[in-house]
Amino acid sequence: MIKSELVSRIAARNPHLYQRDVENIVNTILDKVVEALANGDRVELRGFGAFSVKSRPARLGRNPRTGEKVEVDEKSVPFFKTGKEMRERLNGDAD
């Protein structure tokens, strides 16, 4: 499922809303999550999962093609941990 399909499915269940409103809702939610992570905050959605930012230290990497050493700067990466309910649903324990 891609974003446009997600929008269509939700719009189909909410006939009182315009498709573009639903699109706006989905984008607002995703933007808010991105904005929070960009600020270094955590996003916790009980039952679904939690997004957080982890810091990766600078390291000496290697260009795999040439074998040349390259310095890789410190960076932050987004991380997602699946929520308990979601994990259980994926394995048929709940629902």
């Binding site: 929070a36 600020n39 905050d41 955590r42 996003v43 959605l45």
Partner: peptide, 15 residues
């Protein structure tokens, strides 16, 4: 900046 936790309530407020 950083250290806060965003929850459903914040997403609802944004919407």
């Amino acid at each position: 900046m950083g250290g806060k936790t965003v929850t459903r309530a914040d997403l609802c407020e944004a919407v």
